[in-house]
Design a protein around this nucleic acid. Sequence first.
DNA 1: CTGATCATGTAATATGTTACATGATTGA
DNA 2: TCAATCATGTAACATATTACATGATCAG
Lengths: 183, 183
Amino acid sequence: MSNDNYDEGMSLRMALLGLLTVSGPSSGYDLTKLFERSVNHVWQARHSQIYPELNKMAAGGLVVIEEEGPRGRKTYAVTEEGSRLLREWLLSAGPSRSIRDELALRAFLLPTLEPEEAVIALRDAARICEAKLAELEEIWRTKTQAGKGNFGRYALDLGMRQTRMFRDWARETAEEIERSIRS
Amino acid sequence: MSNDNYDEGMSLRMALLGLLTVSGPSSGYDLTKLFERSVNHVWQARHSQIYPELNKMAAGGLVVIEEEGPRGRKTYAVTEEGSRLLREWLLSAGPSRSIRDELALRAFLLPTLEPEEAVIALRDAARICEAKLAELEEIWRTKTQAGKGNFGRYALDLGMRQTRMFRDWARETAEEIERSIRS
DNA sequence: CTGATCATGTAATATGTTACATGATTGA
DNA sequence: TCAATCATGTAACATATTACATGATCAG
């Protein structure tokens, strides 16, 4: 039951399987923090969503409780079946774009503002990106020093590219609008 | 009640206010189609979500039923209050990135595959981007020809940049993995 | 012994998808 | 007349956020 032929919402499940695959057996608590530090740039999930999902996954045989630790800590590990499911999902491409990007939506609605105000909002956005980028670059430095493998590195690279791209768009669009104000 | 101090989920509301602002008074049916043809690239909503939301918005005084037409058709228009709310939302920046991007998530999880398979999936992703890019560029051409104003144009530009960025990332990452396979 | 962090969960509510349901109008 | 499209809605379910709730362990 739950989600077997319901392809949406598979994402959280896959994200968890992926994190478990790479980081090895982990608790829901670990996974919550891993989520925040890694996948978070493209997908969010809180502990209140992660814990029940792990229970469902365990019930479905995608993961097993490998060990029980100190304060009720449960360490999960991916099973053969979980591994197979993740692999299949990753290889089944499909041009299915399920995107929800609030920042892009804001961008989309920007032209409903007066040009002067749109410029202010765009400069704001660019400034936020700049800060974000500095943060990501700092992580990049610490990450490439320690030989922590490539997981997260590709995604981090993607995150930095994305942030740069958005910053540039915001700047250039602001300039374009300013030009059109003056003319 | 409903969502007043609940900042998530404000997005659908804002998208509808934005579309109404730009396209003028429209019905739920119109808005559903407008959604599909425009905002859809960054945010999705079905009619089953749009109709109830419009009713809530009308109850909250953000829109009014301006006219009732042929088959129960109701034409909504933005009120002063709705207009003000949209403007405030757009000007309240905040580094709040609420993103759910399935494609990026897949990318993130790629390193869990065998290198050879990851390369295949990356090439696949790049190919999909290429197709999407061609599609967006076609829209760009028809849009910049007809003087339909700047609505959608900034967002379309952003969409194209995003797609290009992702395609390049996929390609370059594929190449990097291939190099590491050979060594 | 005390505050920070580890660790797991549930409840209430909001958001989003699929499927179901109905009927009017238009154009061929 | 009949198929396509216009037009609105609800019901059941899945997904996600916020807040509530509890207690163990560790470091100073």
